[in-house]
């Protein structure tokens, strides 16, 4: 068990915690934050893999993930604002108008 592998485990922990966050959080904003948590976990994983295999592509990938995360957050927050405008503030449990 090297320290990089330990970091890998932490990264998985972060990823799964993000998933858990998406599952349990009520607030739309916190949902978004949880997805960021997942991406952070992925980044950590990439960096630790970089260390293990001895390369730099992981970090490059992580950089792109940062960009992607940023754009998702931007759109997501835009949507949250739009939702708020249209209906007043809604929790995630209430965005259930589209359903079977």
């Amino acid at each position: 068990m090297t320290i990089e592998k330990a970091y890998m485990l932490i990264s998985i922990f972060l990823f799964l915690s993000g998933l858990l966050g998406v599952i349990i959080r009520k607030n739309l904003i916190t949902l978004l934050i949880s997805t960021e948590l997942m991406l952070n976990g992925v980044n950590l994983a990439l960096v630790s893999v970089d260390r293990i295999v001895g390369g730099i592509e992981g970090q490059v990938f992580a950089l792109f993930i940062l960009a992607v995360a940023a754009s998702e957050v931007a759109v997501g927050l835009g949507l949250i604002v739009a939702l708020f405008r249209l209906r007043g503030y809604e929790g995630s449990s209430e965005i259930t108008h589209l359903r079977d």
């Binding site: 998933l19 998406v22 599952i23 349990i24 959080r25 995630s92 965005i95 259930t96 359903r99 079977d100």
Partner: peptide, 13 residues
């Protein structure tokens, strides 16, 4: 498919 996002992700997980 009850429209609840949390539940979707839970099922997905």
């Amino acid at each position: 498919q009850r429209g609840k996002l949390n539940f979707y992700v839970l099922s997905l997980s």
